[in-house]
Simulated scan of single mutants.
Amino acid sequence: MSEKYTTLSEIIHERKSVRKFDPTHKIPKDEIEEMLLEATEAPSSSNLQPWRFMVIQDNETRKRLKEFSFNQQQLETASAIIAVIADTEMYHNIDEIYESNFEAGNMDKANMENQISNAKALYPKAPFEARLNIAAFDSGLISMQLMLIAKAKGYDTVPMGGFDKQQFAKEFNLEERYVPLVLIGLGKAAAPAYGSTRLPLDKIVTFV
C-alpha cells in the first residue's frame, strides 16, 4: 500500500471518481500490469475468470473512443483507459483453469475431474443472457478491486458506463462472445473529486 493509506478502510473512503486527470502523467506499462495481476485475485463463478481487459493509451484511439462516449474529457486526460470486457464463452477455459489448479496442488485429481465435468455440463448449455449476467457480475467484482488497488498505489480512477458498447465492439473488432462493460480511467487527479453521501443503513438493510 502507499505511504498515505495504511488501512483498507482508508483506501475505501478515499477512493472517489475523478474526472479531471493530469494529462502529463504517464503510468508505466509494468505498473499497470502489476495492478491488473493483483486485481485478478478477485473471485469469479466456478473460478472461470470471465474478464478481459484492453488497456488504451494511444492518443488517436482515445479521441475516437471519446466520439462515441459522450465526449467525456477524462478519456483523453487519464494516463490510460482500461476497458473491462466480459467473455460470455468462459467455458473454453475450463480445462486450462482446473488443470492449473491441480498442478498447483490446490485440488486432487478426482476433484479436478469432477469440477471439470460439472462446469462443462453447466456453462456451454446456459443461455447467452445467463452467461452474460455471470460474466458481468464477475467483471464488476474485479473492476472494484482494480480501482481500490489503484488508489492504494496513489492513483485515481473513474468508472464509465456511458459509451456506445456496440460501436466499441465494432471499433476494436471484438468477437460476438466479448461484451464491453465499463471503461475505467486511470491516472493522477488534477483536481479533487466531488464528495458524495450514501443512503442510511436503515433504508437499505433488513435483518431477518
Rank of each mutant, 00 (worst) to 15 (best):
V84F: 05
F53T: 02
N118R: 15
E99H: 13
V18S: 01
I56P: 00
F128H: 11
D108W: 04
T61R: 14
N59W: 15
E33F: 13
E33T: 14
L148A: 02
E33Y: 13
R19L: 08
H25F: 12
T61A: 13
G105L: 05
K26R: 14
I94V: 11
K120P: 08
E99K: 12
E14V: 12
I116K: 06
E60D: 14
I149L: 03
A86E: 03
A42P: 08
I27D: 04
A136C: 09
M107H: 06
L75R: 00
F53E: 03
A119P: 05
K120C: 09
F53R: 03
Q145G: 10
E38D: 11
F53P: 01
E129Y: 14
D95P: 07
S79L: 08
E67W: 07
E31F: 06
P28F: 06
V84Q: 01
I27P: 04
M144D: 09
F137T: 13
R62D: 06
G140F: 03
I81C: 00
N47I: 10
D22S: 03
T77Y: 04
N118L: 15
I85H: 01
F128Y: 15
N59I: 14
D95H: 15
M147V: 02
I149M: 02
E96P: 11
A42G: 10
S117Y: 10
E103A: 13
E31R: 08
N111V: 14
H13M: 11
L37E: 13
A83R: 00
A86Q: 03
Y123W: 10
A135D: 03
K66D: 09
I142L: 10
Y91H: 13
Y123A: 03
K66E: 11
N71R: 11
A135V: 04
L141Y: 11
Q57T: 10
A39L: 08
I82S: 00
